[in-house]
Design a protein around this nucleic acid. Structure first.
Length: 291
DNA sequence: CGAGGTACCTGACAGC
DNA sequence: TGCTGTCAGGTACCTC
């Protein structure tokens, strides 16, 4: 899915577009995406008339605080993304009535549609249908196990080097996998972990316990750097992710490792390699990033 | 307990 | 062309 920069970009976009709007109705052809309450009619009934009071992010989760102390939790997983605009249903598929949302791949996979009180809509597009939407009582969401287990936010001011070292303390395993563990630090996935490790010149399979203090420092700076750059550029859109207006993020030009197998390392010219472990691909420069 | 595999879905693309 | 296998930004759940 979208990782931290993509989720942050979505949250920013939503705050500009749907704050203080009220839900009028909802539609879906993929009931399994709505996980809570499980019955879609109950879900519809519950969100009808609720007003959007605040939109924020915790890790890769989007939280839409509603009136009456409820919150919508949206996790976009691999290919989900939220869009704002106007569509009409034609022959079973949604067709946009505005430019910007004209890409077929954006509209073809709209799975859930929220109708707002200004004639516009909030859509969830998701090719693979892994995304989830849940309606919670805000208080219960904040106290839920899934929420409490989440690690620190890497872009918050209080995420100091000391804190980074502390969360990695006693962690076993390979650094790339640990970086992607949301209970260690939130928001980092397969793209930004590869990018951060390239920046820090650390091999993705290096064991956390073997990282020197100077390597940790470089990694700490690299994590913040790539995530900040990602946010600044509106995320990465080489695949399904889009901003809420349907446009693409610009991080693509900055990719140094991820999906660059066989291409030249921007630092030393060696060929970027891809290896698989933990069920995921890792991209790195075998010359700059030694084990 | 932790590590590893699988499941959830729908493609795109490479190779035969 | 068509078939098969692999790969895809994530996470939950199961087994050993």
């Amino acid at each position: 899915m979208p990782e931290l920069p993509e989720v942050e970009t979505t949250v920013k976009g939503l705050n500009l577009k749907v704050l203080n709007r009220t839900f009028i109705d909802a539609w879906t052809d993929s009931k399994k995406i709505i996980k809570k309450p499980k019955n879609f009619n109950s879900f519809k009934k519950e969100i009808k008339g609720k007003k959007i009071k605040k939109i924020w992010r915790r890790g890769k989760n989007i939280i839409i605080d509603l009136s009456n102390e409820y919150s919508l939790l949206v996790h976009q997983k691999m290919t989900g993304h939220l869009l704002y605009g106007m569509w009409s249903m034609k022959q079973g598929t949604w067709e946009p009535s505005e430019k910007g949302l004209l890409e077929e791949k954006v509209n073809k996979y709209i799975r859930v549609m929220f109708f707002l009180d200004n004639e516009k809509m909030l859509a969830l597009s998701d090719l693979r249908k892994f995304a989830k939407i849940e309606l919670w009582k805000t208080k219960e969401l904040l106290e839920s196990k899934e929420f409490k287990i989440l690690g620190p936010e890497p872009l918050k001011k209080d995420f100091t080097f000391e804190k980074f070292k502390k969360v990695l303390e006693n962690k076993k395993g390979k650094i790339k996998q640990v970086l992607m563990d949301q209970s260690v630090v939130v928001g980092i996935g397969n793209i930004y972990s590869s990018e951060a490790l390239w920046q820090a010149k650390i091999h993705p399979e290096k064991s956390v316990a073997k990282l020197s203090d100077s390597e940790l420092k470089l990694l700490y700076q690299a994590v913040k750097k790539v995530l900040e750059l990602g946010v600044k550029l509106g995320g990465e859109s080489f695949s399904d992710y889009r901003k809420v207006d349907g446009s693409k993020g610009d991080f693509d030009t900055e990719r140094k490792a991820y999906k660059r197998e066989g291409q030249k390392c921007h630092r030393c010219g060696a060929k970027i390699k891809r290896i698989k472990f933990g069920g995921r691909s890792a991209f790195f420069c075998p010359t700059c990033q030694k084990l």
